[in-house]
Simulated scan of single mutants.
Amino acid sequence: MSRRARVSPAEAGLPDGGARRRTPGLRREEVAVLAGVGASWYQWLEQGRDISVSPQVLDSVARVLRLSNAERRHLYVLAGLNPPAAEPAADHGCEGMRRLIDAWMPFPAHIMDRYYNCVMYNDAAGWVLGMRPENTQNCLVDFFTDPLYRARSQSWERNARTVVAQFRAMCADRPDDEGLQAVLAELTSVSPEFSALWARRDILDAGVVRKELDHPLVGLLCVESTALKVPARPDLTIVLHTPLDEANTVGKLEWLASPEGRRGAMYPVAG
């Protein structure tokens, strides 16, 4: 009833007829007509009666009442159905995410979409992980094909098994996703190592991944990467790298972010 009161007949494309209405917004009968359902059925829906409800009908009601993504999901819950997946916020929230990963400095952080495409990364991810514009900008493809990252990663073989098993779990959750199938096809064509690991059929849930990296300027770095989901942007994942209490990793990352470290990174170094 409160959502009906927000929508005027004019907003719904109905003539108001000039007559004074006893209640603001749309009448139940008008919502029913616009949603293509029976007036009695819609009344029972508002009253919370035990009736048969389909997602298609709820979507029609949500459209007429101009419900937001959160309100539409809540309507599903009230009707006893599993809510649909959350949709990205209208403002995308990318500026806030950029501030987040920049505030994570001097530790590496990056953001990728549901297909592992890199959306943005901070400076430390460039210095430490070798992220740079000339890469494919797909984090999974670069893991297997970027020679710079391969040369630095001392934990590559162990982590390769993990990332492939986690990728299989994602593909299993969305077997009809053409985007994931395209990534799978590309990896299979460019990396025999990926193909061999994929054939093992291992499967793992996402979790913390330990990484040991041999940086050409500061030597060994030990970090943990944690993948975080953002409710406002369910299509994106923030990957934060946290330094471990080993090999003076914090001090080395802080030095790389210093003016002296930045100058050192400007010159070519083997590896």
Rank of each mutant, 00 (worst) to 15 (best):
D59R: 14
V77K: 14
A90L: 15
R98N: 04
A85F: 07
S60W: 14
D102T: 05
A109T: 02
H92E: 13
N82W: 13
M105S: 07
R114H: 12
A62M: 15
R72W: 03
D113L: 12
R73F: 04
P83C: 02
L100F: 03
M112Q: 15
D91L: 03
A109S: 05
R66Y: 07
P88K: 05
N82E: 10
N82Y: 15
E95T: 09
D102N: 13
R63A: 13
L100N: 03
R63D: 15
S60G: 15
H110F: 08
E95M: 10
H92S: 15
E87T: 13
H74C: 09
V61G: 06
R98P: 00
E71L: 12
A90I: 12
I101Q: 00
V64E: 04
L67I: 07
G96Q: 06
R66A: 13
A86V: 02
A70S: 09
C94M: 13
D59I: 07
V77D: 03
D91C: 03
R114Q: 11
V64I: 10
A86L: 05
W104S: 00
A79F: 11
I111T: 00
M112K: 14
W104C: 05
L81Y: 12
R72T: 08
V61I: 08
G96T: 02
R66S: 12
V64N: 02
Y115I: 09
I101K: 01
Y115M: 13
W104L: 06
Y115C: 13
E87L: 13
D113T: 12
D113K: 14
V61L: 02
I111E: 01
C94V: 14
E87A: 15
R99D: 14
V61C: 01
P88Y: 00
R98V: 04
C94E: 11
M112G: 10
R72M: 06
P84T: 05
P106N: 03
G80I: 06
D91S: 08
A89H: 00
E95G: 05
V64K: 15
R66P: 04
M112W: 09
P84Y: 01
H74S: 06
R73A: 13
R72V: 09
D102P: 09
D102I: 09
H110A: 04
L67H: 12
A86M: 07
M112T: 11
A86D: 09
A103R: 12
P106C: 05
E95P: 05
A109R: 08
N69G: 07
G96M: 03
F107V: 12
E87I: 08
A86Y: 00
A70R: 12
H110D: 05
P84V: 06
I111S: 06
A109D: 01
N69M: 08
N82M: 15
A70Y: 03
Y115A: 14
A89D: 01
R72C: 02
